[in-house]
């Protein structure tokens, strides 16, 4: 997993990217609120919102195909929950409402995350008085996600190349082993990170 997979597009340059992060966060939140407050009787407004979001996407010079791809990739999560609503009286209408709202909201969050670097969001969090320890955790997590995902993949590969039994209980135990050892390695890595942070003058 490449580290720029996380927010590949957030460091591009465009008028939308240059908008301050707090404004984008506020706009995204109000767009989400508007989306869930639109009554179904005004379905045309969903179209207006969609057009607005597409306009923002174009203005932010994001590669539209890969944006659409990610949207489609995430759509099953919306459909999965929405499917539950089909099993009730009047479910068809509710289902359509949920899918429309869910997809628009998804698009909104996707636009926010692909035009705003995560570090800038953390700066906004700091101004909003989010506990400092949580911000430190988020920053460290953002830094180490891809390291640990890579490590997990390497360990699974090593395991797969040495294990020849394919029965399920054995595979489960092997997976449990990999995760357990991944935690041990993470702990050891955290100790090294702490030493490195101290060496660079970090204070709580």
């Amino acid at each position: 997993m490449h580290h720029d997979y996380l927010d590949r597009f957030s460091r591009l340059d465009s008028p939308v990217h240059r908008v301050p992060a707090w404004l984008k966060l506020a706009c995204a939140l109000s767009l989400l609120l508007i989306t869930i407050l639109i009554p179904m009787s005004r379905a045309a407004l969903f179209g207006v919102l969609a057009a607005l979001l597409i306009a923002i996407a174009v203005a932010s010079r994001l590669p539209l195909l890969s944006l659409a791809g990610r949207l489609l990739m995430l759509e099953p999560f919306v459909l999965g929950v929405a499917l539950l609503s089909l099993f009730q009286p009047g479910g068809g209408a509710i289902f359509l409402r949920l899918v429309a709202r869910g997809s628009l909201c998804l698009f909104t969050v996707l636009l926010l995350s692909s035009t705003t670097p995560f570090s800038e969001i953390l700066t906004v969090f700091r101004k909003l008085r989010v506990p400092a320890i949580l911000i430190t955790m988020l920053a460290l997590m953002y830094r180490y996600i891809f390291v640990l995902v890579d490590e997990a993949e390497r360990m699974s590969r090593a395991r797969a190349s040495r294990t020849f039994r394919r029965d399920r209980s054995h595979m489960w135990r092997a997976r449990g082993d990999v995760i357990g050892r991944l935690f041990v390695r993470s702990t050891e890595r955290a100790e090294r990170i702490y030493a490195a942070m101290c060496a660079r003058g970090w204070k709580t």
Binding site: M137, L140, M141, I145, L148, V178, E191, Y194
Partner: peptide, 24 residues
Amino acid sequence: PPRKVPLLGVTAAFIFAAQMLNFP
């Protein structure tokens, strides 16, 4: 203790990575 603070962030990344390993 302060020396455990990095452990929290790394454990969060660990949980995230562990969620990507599938069990058949």
